[in-house]
Design a protein around this nucleic acid. Structure first.
Lengths: 213, 213
DNA sequence: TTCTTTACAAGATGAGCTACTTTGTCAAAT
DNA sequence: ATTTGACAAAGTAGCTCATCTTGTAAAGAA
């Protein structure tokens, strides 16, 4: 995201320039197409041509936007992550007055939503080569870094007095624990969320301050 | 582990009865054989017959001890974990007077040892079906639970006044974070360990008490 | 422009087949 | 308790050929 541009090529601020908007629309369409296809077959069974045609776009356009199959898969995983991060964001914002409750609500929302999502289940249970699981585990750093950055931003927005480094620390730990609990679930979401909130509570109090903004 | 038995079938306490000892020896030998084989081929290329013969044992004996190939792999992963948990234990014990330092040293020891271990590297980089990676990630609960139990025991030994539930909470989080940082490494071990220690520090102070035993 | 179409080489994958191997379980022998 | 030999069922390996897919490039259309 390039933030809110002032003026680009004479375009008024606030309105998204056409090229960006078109590109965004293209990506969204391609992701939606891939999502549809994944309801039926596994990722290894879906070709780039399938995705392109399901999106009503030529295969070449797909390759122009994403350099390779893996790159698309990586971007797709992160895009799906957006869906969940929206829920996480909302949960945090609903508790800007109580950081411990914010963490608990956010984690529970994520674990519940992701745990029930059919697409996530497919990705998690798909262990074979060619699946998308590696992008969440062994090659999961892009996802971790992206999710950490987004969560850090939300935390800093709600608790601007918090030291940035501590916000990042908390965010990354939450992201890694969330991924861990999705790939290898132990207790029910609410139990895990409550326990994690209790664990991180003392740090949260110290870093975000017991007093709200 | 059955702890220290009092008297079993007339055998004096303290001495391990032969059957247990033999069984233990058998398992160790089989694990060592598997470890040797894994230096050369991937797990999917190694047959149960390979393991058995490398251990100088019949294939049937292997099947008598471990019901199936997957069961053996699972047990093997945990057995390898023992090696690292020994180091973790030692690191914790060296800092019974300073719980924060204990956590930092333990995590750093683990990340360093596991990160440099050739066997771990193989397991992590092996994404194909038939590998051992699932036993650490998607089917990793047995490992998580075992490691959590062991670490919990060590913590309770060093800080007996700590509430058992809090010790368990801390242990499981450390285990999950450790696995996460092994499968998807971010910073160097010492950085990760220091950051995690800072994150969990406040909880540690509260749960294990600032005052040593 | 930007997207589509068409074409292409290199590599991967699938079908179809056979032969062999491996897994997991027996009962008998040591 | 361990080994041996045997077994069915399932899986894999090798093989061939045809087809498909990936990734890239250039030419054409909106």
């Amino acid at each position: 995201m390039t933030g809110t541009a002032a003026t680009i090529g004479g375009v008024a601020a606030g309105r998204t320039p056409y090229p960006q908007a078109a590109r965004q629309l293209l990506r969204e369409t391609l992701f939606a197409a891939a999502r549809d296809e994944l309801q039926r077959r596994a990722w290894s069974q879906i070709t780039m041509a399938d995705v392109a045609s399901a999106a009503g776009v030529s295969r070449q356009t797909l390759y122009n936007e994403f350099g390779s199959r893996d790159e698309f898969a990586q971007a797709f995983v992160i895009h799906e992550g957006e869906r969940f991060m929206d829920g996480v964001d909302a949960a945090v914002r609903a508790h800007f007055d109580d950081p411990r409750a914010a963490v608990e609500a956010a984690l529970e929302a994520f674990l519940r939503a992701a745990g029930e999502d059919p697409l996530v289940r497919i990705v998690i249970s798909d262990d074979g080569t060619g699946g998308m699981l590696p992008f969440v585990t062994t090659q999961g750093m892009p996802v971790v870094q992206w999710a950490t950055a987004r969560l850090t931003a939300t935390i800093e927005e709600g608790w601007p007095q918090a030291p940035p480094e501590k916000a990042r620390l908390l965010a990354e730990a939450l992201v890694r624990l969330a991924i861990s609990h999705i790939t290898a679930p132990g207790e029910a979401p609410e139990v895990t969320a409550a326990a994690t909130s209790e664990l991180l509570g003392p740090f949260i109090d110290e870093a975000l301050g017991t007093a709200p903004r």
